[in-house]
Design a protein around this nucleic acid. Structure first.
Lengths: 138, 138
DNA sequence: CCGCATCCTATTGGATACTG
DNA sequence: CAGTATCCAATAGGATGCGG
């Protein structure tokens, strides 16, 4: 179980070096749709491709597939094909995936609770920027 | 305080529509370095530009600036300039930012605890893929 | 129904050099 | 020290159409 990385060699738990394994995980969940998939499946209930596609409004099939494959590769998701006709494929988070989904859901819950605050911050920031760049027209 | 979005109009709390405000937040923290910045500053201690740059090994000044500005815009970070010479600029998470940082840190902690499992999953997945695409050479 | 193949664009991120 | 400016590369993401 050697991961080829020892935090102690690099001076502490909070150093973010180029080859830190945490980065690999972060890079995966940083995908545009990944966290949404994780939250959608966080409760452990399996879901079919089309259903996921509907819940993630705007995702194209290609990108959804890529996202699902990446999660499968990481061991967070299982893909089960039922050889029926028409074909039926179910996606379900593993135990590990559910843990991740739960953590991500905390973030989405938190952000929903603070949407208004952040929108206000954004507007104030943009307003300040606009005043400092007095622009040409009207 | 109207955000222009009412979840009830769209059929539930767990629908991820194109204009869902949660998406905006997710898009911000999904940046390649954003979560690392959030964790680095999660304890509330301010940090200077160069110090951050050292901790996020590999980040270029341009990208770090972009990341910091995005967080500032969202109201998660404050940028304080001390008009000394040489110049001194401190970055510090707001209360909101610290909350976010705490949540992200749970994810990084979790991923560090499960690095080995995920690496194993990755290798098994890749191995299976290699066996199914029997490749040309040797 | 699931999702791959192809092609294409846009955005992100990086390298390098330079400035207040 | 703390960035900005410029240019460039990578890749993520999207549109469309077909195949099992």
């Amino acid at each position: 179980m050697d991961t080829g990385f020892d935090l102690r060699e690099h001076g502490g738990v909070d150093v973010f070096l180029r080859d830190c394994p945490t980065r690999a995980v972060l890079d995966v969940i940083a995908g545009k749709w990944t966290m949404l998939v994780l939250v959608a499946l966080a409760d452990g209930r399996p879901m079919r491709f089309a259903e996921l596609r509907r819940r993630l409004d705007g995702v194209t099939p290609k990108v959804l597939t890529q996202t699902l494959r990446a999660l499968e590769r990481e061991g967070l998701l299982t893909r089960t094909v039922y050889p029926t006709v028409p074909p039926r494929v179910e996606y379900r988070l593993t135990r590990l995936g559910q843990e991740a989904g739960g953590l991500v859901q905390r973030i989405t819950d938190w952000s929903q609770a603070n949407v208004a605050v952040m929108q206000a911050a954004r507007e104030e920031y943009d307003g300040r920027a606009a005043r400092q760049l007095p622009g040409a027209a009207s």
